[in-house]
């Protein structure tokens, strides 16, 4: 189980990296923590001409920890590092809760937030959070920067809106209406990709009244999806969940059939909403 031969490039700056991407496009595989790409290379499922090691780029920052601007994380922020920072700074509890569910202690140590988003596994936790929070992905190419809303970024399993010459350079996480958030998932084993993951955000206006609800579901379809409801949906959240279920087209595979996925989505969807409401001080 060894990879096909590839050239290896290790740019020192983002500019160098983008030049490589412009040059190689689809033939280049950007490498961050390596926990998704490494196995795919070893199994010869990925056969790039060149592996672009992003490891030395200065994309390790967590920016703007002020309440009125989105938090920006560089693509290379390691999952374990973000986990510690979020807990210490008491921000983005939804992401903090999700990070606890990602892989394992060992994989979070090296795994990066950008790598997880760029890989776009349908059940991955960070893409789900980003979609649920209405965040965006900062894509960079030699032509410049563009921000793609997460809801548009994840197109299908392992397929995103990233152009071949672009790199995922960072993620933007808008205010999530804390503390009214909750995350939960169900996996066959601890640390496996979830069969279904769910995230909920209850938003409030400045006057403290509930303004709406966002329910994100991962693993059910081939990309994470968010359902948005008004204050009315909060009051009738069971109906809101049912309406959401009616729209879903769950994946059917030999391990889990579609009705099972749907049942989990319903259960977890309700559970995260109830928990988010409780955390927001609203008693469902």
């Amino acid at each position: 189980m060894k990879p096909v031969p590839f050239d290896y490039a290790r740019p020192e700056t983002l500019e160098e990296a983008l030049a490589l991407m412009a040059n190689y496009g689809d033939d280049a595989a950007p490498l961050a923590g390596g926990l998704s790409l490494g196995p795919m290379l070893n199994l010869r499922l990925a056969r790039p001409a060149v592996v672009v090691d992003l490891g030395r780029l200065a994309l390790h920052e967590i920016d703007s920890l002020s309440p009125d601007r989105p938090v920006e994380t560089g693509a290379l922020v390691r999952q374990a590092f973000l986990q510690q920072r979020l807990k210490a700074d008491l921000i983005m509890p939804l992401v903090g809760e999700a990070l606890d569910c990602i892989g394992h202690y060992q994989t979070r140590a090296r795994g990066t937030v950008g790598g997880s988003v760029a890989h776009a596994d349908p059940a991955a936790e960070l893409p789900l959070c980003l979609v649920t929070m209405d965040g965006s992905v900062w894509l960079q190419s030699t032509a410049g920067r563009r921000n793609v809303p997460a809801t548009a970024f994840f197109e299908a399993a392992l397929t995103t809106a990233r152009h071949p010459d672009e790199l995922v350079a960072g993620l933007e996480w808008p205010d999530a209406g804390e503390p009214g958030t909750a995350f939960a998932e169900f996996a066959l084993r601890h640390g496996d990709f979830a069969i279904v993951a769910a995230a909920a955000i209850v938003r409030r206006n400045d006057d403290g009244r509930v303004s709406g609800i966002r329910l994100g579901l991962g693993g059910v379809e081939d990309a994470p999806r968010v359902f948005v409801g008004s204050d009315d949906a909060v009051n009738n959240f069971k109906d809101f969940v049912e309406q959401s279920m009616a729209v879903l087209r769950p994946t059917d595979d030999p391990v889990c059939d579609a009705p099972y996925r749907l049942a989990l989505a319903r259960k977890l969807g309700l559970a995260v909403i109830v928990r988010a409401l409780e955390r927001a001080g609203l008693h469902p």
């Binding site: 290896y8 490494g38 070893n42 202690y105 060992q106 090296r110």
Partner: peptide, 12 residues
Amino acid sequence: LLARACAIYAVQ
């Protein structure tokens, strides 16, 4: 940092 030596290449 903990790393899986099978998912990293020597050049890295």
